[in-house]
Computed example of a mutant assay.
Amino acid sequence: MDWGAAWLAPWRATGEPVAQQIVRGDTVHSALQTVLGAGRGGVRFVPQSDLPDGIAYEQFIFDTRRVPTRDNLHDFFNGLAWLQFPQTKRRLNQLQAQAIAADGIQAVRGPLRDALTVFDENGAVLQAPEALWDALRARDWQALFVDLRPLWREARLVLFGHALLEKLVSPRKPMVAHVYQAPAAIHSIADMDAWLAQALQPGHWATKPFAPLPVLGVPGWWPANEVPGFYADAQVFRPLRVASVA
């Protein structure tokens, strides 16, 4: 794992010690619990075998404050998210459990659970000048990444989704984050966590208030995006769809 990668910068101080313990032979849940410490974070990391058959994962966490954890990268990054964003992860879990209690487990998730899962797995938070947000919402990739490139020095992108972090262990150009807008006044990860947990309001969140962002197009995140023509790939940098009028 390349802890020098730009997207891992906010995660390194917490994640590298956990990874080192795993390399020395610890299980993922044990390494996470050691870094978490007793009585912190409101949850405990436990083996996946602690999850009883027939009990929904999110419901089990809500009821027991225990996070079933497998020995793989996906659950490693999920555990790091609990360490970095404890308030947000608890709020996501609360909303998932409430939806499960109300509607049960169905073949297709409802709009709220779907949106929560998308963000939990693949979300990110972007602080950026409004001009960058305007270009992103319009899918104007030329403006976003080329014409307005100097403005990215005033921006900060923090990945949240543990599946996205897992995929970026082997970076590929098509990888996309679902990005939520954060105010520029937030500086620390702890403050971002508190703000994001408060922002998780069901009515608003069910609308999927995200914008898709090909993360390896972010200036400074991948050397290949310095090459002319990088953003001309319409399979990755797709134009905004315009709804047809009947």
Results as ranks from 00 to 15, higher is better:
7 W>I: 01
7 W>V: 10
8 L>I: 01
21 Q>T: 04
23 V>G: 04
24 R>N: 11
25 G>W: 09
28 V>G: 05
31 A>D: 11
32 L>E: 10
38 A>L: 14
41 G>E: 08
42 G>F: 13
45 F>N: 11
49 S>G: 11
49 S>Q: 15
55 I>F: 11
56 A>P: 06
56 A>Y: 02
63 D>H: 12
66 R>K: 15
68 P>M: 06
69 T>D: 07
70 R>Q: 14
70 R>I: 03
73 L>I: 04
75 D>E: 14
81 A>I: 08
84 Q>Y: 01
85 F>T: 02
89 K>D: 05
90 R>L: 15
91 R>L: 06
97 A>W: 09
102 A>I: 03
103 D>S: 12
105 I>A: 09
105 I>S: 13
105 I>C: 13
111 P>D: 12
113 R>W: 00
115 A>T: 11
119 F>S: 01
119 F>I: 00
128 A>N: 07
129 P>Y: 13
130 E>K: 07
134 D>P: 00
134 D>E: 11
135 A>R: 01
138 A>T: 02
140 D>S: 07
140 D>W: 04
143 A>L: 14
147 D>T: 15
147 D>P: 00
149 R>M: 10
151 L>Q: 10
153 R>E: 15
153 R>Q: 15
154 E>W: 01
157 L>W: 00
158 V>H: 02
160 F>I: 03
163 A>Q: 04
163 A>L: 09
164 L>N: 01
168 L>C: 10
168 L>K: 07
169 V>H: 13
170 S>E: 13
171 P>N: 08
174 P>F: 08
174 P>I: 13
174 P>Q: 12
182 A>R: 02
182 A>D: 06
183 P>A: 07
189 I>P: 02
194 A>C: 06
194 A>G: 03
200 L>I: 12
201 Q>Y: 01
202 P>D: 10
203 G>M: 08
207 T>Q: 15
213 L>N: 13
216 L>F: 03
217 G>T: 09
218 V>P: 09
220 G>D: 11
220 G>S: 09
221 W>V: 07
221 W>S: 07
222 W>Q: 11
223 P>A: 14
223 P>M: 03
223 P>G: 00
226 E>T: 12
228 P>K: 12
228 P>T: 10
229 G>E: 06
234 A>V: 12
235 Q>I: 00
237 F>M: 10
240 L>T: 03
242 V>E: 13
242 V>A: 06
243 A>C: 02
246 A>L: 14
246 A>S: 13
